[in-house]
Structure formats: structure tokens, C-alpha cells
């Protein structure tokens, strides 16, 4: 019995175009909000570097709060990668893990599982920064 042929016939194909469009628009909107915040902070007299950090912190705070109120997962289902790729996705993955493992305690629950989803981003972020740093040092002298 050739199951795979029949299965393939009925399997749902991902809506690549619609999902891509949603991701692009929603991800873009997150970026616009970030940019507006950045300019607002600069206008308020905060230095450009500090304003950048403050903007990212604000976006992370909002994403974490939305996660805690149970809204972020619904937004994420709609926006697809549009909310997963920006820093909001990173914040959500950590807050969601912290909430999920709260019952198992501060140490064995939250601390142990906080990076359950975000760990991969940190590991490969550091590894690729390290490799690129070496390449830059070798070819450009630092």
C-alpha cells in the first residue's frame, strides 16, 4: 500500500505568499514603531546610542507584557514570522518560557528553562560573532 502518495494528495500546502506578505507588513510595522520610538527619544534629548538601547528595551517590555497578558501568541499566529524575527520574538520566547516554568520554582523552573527556546539564538549569535570577529581581524587588522 502506497500511503505516501495519498497522504501527499490531501496534505495542506503552506500559503507561502500570503504568509510572506503578512510577515513583511507586520515585521515592517514593528520596525516603524521602533524607528518612531527612537526618534521620539532623540527628540526628548537622549543621546543617539542611549536612545537606541532605550528603544529596544521598550519594544522588549511591550512584547513581554503582551506575552504575559496572553495576547502575543494570538498576534504571532496572525503575523507569522513578522513577530518572530524582530527582537519581540526573542522577548516572547523568554517570557513565555519563564511563565511556563514558574510552577517548578525560581531555580529549577524559571532559571533552568528561561533559554529553552532563546538559547539557540544566543549560542549561534555568539559563535558567529566570534568567527566573523576573527575573519575581520585577519583581513582588516581589527
Amino acid at each position: 500500500m502506497n500511503y505516501e502518495e495519498i497522504i501527499k494528495k490531501h496534505q495542506l500546502k503552506p500559503k507561502y505568499f500570503a504568509n510572506g506578505l503578512k510577515s513583511f507588513v507586520c515585521g515592517g510595522m514593528v520596525a516603524i514603531v521602533g524607528q518612531l520610538l527612537l526618534e521620539l527619544y532623540i527628540k526628548l534629548g537622549i543621546g543617539e546610542d542611549e536612545a537606541g538601547s532605550l528603544m529596544i528595551t521598550t519594544v522588549i517590555l511591550v512584547a513581554s507584557l503582551l506575552t504575559a497578558f496572553g495576547v502575543y501568541d494570538k498576534l504571532g499566529q496572525f503575523a507569522k514570522a513578522g513577530l518572530a524575527v524582530p527582537v519581540t520574538g526573542f522577548a516572547n520566547s523568554m517570557t513565555a518560557s519563564a511563565l511556563e516554568y514558574k510552577k517548578e520554582g525560581m531555580l529549577l523552573g524559571i532559571a533552568n528553562n528561561l533559554f529553552k527556546l532563546a538559547g539557540a539564538v544566543i549560542v549561534y549569535g555568539v559563535v558567529s560573532a566570534y568567527i566573523l570577529g576573527i575573519i575581520r581581524y585577519l583581513f582588516m587588522g581589527g
Binding site: Y72, A79, G89, N92
Partner: peptide, 17 residues
């Protein structure tokens, strides 16, 4: 969800299947 997939509040989109 927490055992087989992701934390309940995780925002990654799931497919229609």
C-alpha cells in the same frame, strides 16, 4: 503543549494542519 511543543504563550505561528 509544554511537553510536546512550546510554552503556551509562545508566539510562533502554527500551520493549519
Amino acid at each position: 503543549e509544554r511537553q510536546y511543543r512550546n510554552p503556551t504563550e509562545y508566539g510562533g505561528a502554527r500551520p493549519d494542519s
